[in-house]
Computed example of a mutant assay.
Amino acid sequence: MHVLNEWTALACKELGIDPAQVDRDKILDLTKEVAHNVARPAAPLTAYLLGLAQGAGTASEDAVARLVELAQKWERTSEKAD
């Protein structure tokens, strides 16, 4: 995790973000669920969309939890369709 900590700090500095505001584990859990249940390329896209919503002020406080739930339901929906 040392490299991940260094990268997070460097990226935050470059983007002008306070690293203390980044819940890395929460985002990693989100991307894991999306990659596993939806599609691997959907994981970084979802993280980007979440970032856009956060920046625009349109993301709810429970946005990550709601996205995780959507990803988990996606698997169940696609399994029923098969």
Rank of each mutant, 00 (worst) to 15 (best):
H2F: 05
H2I: 10
H2P: 04
L4H: 04
N5R: 11
N5L: 09
E6H: 04
W7Y: 08
W7P: 01
A9Y: 02
A9L: 06
L10K: 01
L10R: 03
C12M: 07
K13A: 13
L15S: 05
G16T: 05
G16F: 04
D18H: 03
P19L: 14
P19S: 15
A20N: 13
Q21Y: 02
Q21G: 07
D23V: 06
R24P: 00
D25I: 03
D25Q: 12
K26Y: 02
L28R: 09
L28W: 06
L28A: 12
L30E: 13
L30W: 11
T31W: 13
K32H: 13
K32D: 11
E33W: 04
E33I: 06
V34D: 11
V34Y: 10
V34K: 11
A35G: 15
A35K: 05
A35T: 05
H36Y: 12
N37A: 07
N37E: 11
V38H: 12
A39H: 14
P41N: 14
P41F: 10
A42H: 09
A43W: 08
A43H: 08
A43T: 10
L45W: 05
T46M: 15
A47G: 15
A47L: 11
Y48L: 13
L49T: 10
L49S: 08
L50F: 15
G51D: 02
L52G: 07
L52E: 15
Q54V: 07
G55R: 09
G55V: 12
A56F: 12
A56P: 02
T58Q: 05
A59D: 10
D62S: 02
D62G: 00
A63Q: 02
A63P: 01
A63E: 06
V64T: 12
V64Q: 07
A65P: 01
R66S: 04
L67N: 06
L67S: 06
V68N: 02
L70Y: 03
L70W: 02
L70D: 09
A71Y: 03
A71C: 03
A71M: 04
Q72A: 02
R76N: 12
S78K: 14
E79C: 01
K80D: 05
D82R: 09
D82P: 01
